[in-house]
């Protein structure tokens, strides 16, 4: 039996559809109920919904054998897990955005507002730019408008929110998509089952392309 952690929400439903088409269905999962754990003994899978940012923790700590997490979460928290497949869904990018009239004043530290402090730090370190990280938990776009920060580092999907707030993208930090991850210890004891699932999921990803 493989335990699979799925991210709650639209991305989770999309990737469940991929699992189902790959031969690992569990229709009860999509029923409107308060249940959190769903099992299909015949297919050898047990799914559970968790907060998207928690998937990697469930997998790293072995409560789930595999899971689906965004590359943003993997880069930010650096869990010690296998990253087995790019599912090529949930595609977006981590970007630097700022007000239209932004000009980088290199005589002082750049104030960067973000939910992804590690990614932002790593990115600016690679550029040799001194920064002052302002860690926020939401509504990041408001920071440059109110003068809290010079730029933001955040996920950009369509760019609509940025546009509506008069912000523009200055640089792409890294492209993001959903990744299939696995626990390193579990993979050694359930290797055959995980390999089969990865092979079937790879076919679904290829079909999509």
């Amino acid at each position: 039996m493989l335990n699979i952690a799925l991210p709650k929400g639209r991305l989770g439903e999309k990737v469940y559809d991929m699992f189902a088409r790959a031969g690992y269905p569990c229709p009860a999962l999509l029923e409107n109920s308060r249940k959190l754990i769903f099992e299909n003994e015949e297919a050898g899978v047990r799914y559970f919904w968790v907060k998207p940012s928690d998937v990697a923790i469930y997998v790293e700590r072995g409560a789930a054998d595999i899971g689906v997490a965004g590359k943003d979460i993997l880069l930010e928290y650096r869990p010690d897990v296998y990253e087995l497949l790019d599912l090529k869904t949930g595609i977006c990018r981590m970007a630097v955005a700022a007000k239209k009239d932004f000009r980088d004043d290199t005589t002082r530290a750049l104030r960067v507002a973000t939910k992804f402090s590690n990614i932002a730090e790593h990115y600016y370190l690679s550029k040799g730019r001194d920064i002052d990280i302002i860690h926020l938990n939401g509504s990041i776009e408001i920071a440059p408008i109110l003068g809290l920060s010079d730029v933001i580092v955040d996920i950009v999907e369509t760019g609509t929110t940025l546009k509506e707030n008069d912000l523009i993208v200055y640089d792409t930090v890294v492209p993001i998509s959903a990744r299939l991850i696995a626990n390193k210890s579990g993979s050694r004891f359930k290797g055959g089952e995980i390999d089969r699932l990865v092979a079937e999921m790879a076919k679904i990803v290829e079909e999509k392309e």
Partner: peptide, 9 residues
């Protein structure tokens, strides 16, 4: 080294 049931080496 890994032991079944323990999630890390």
């Amino acid at each position: 080294g890994y032991v079944e049931g323990i999630p890390a080496s």
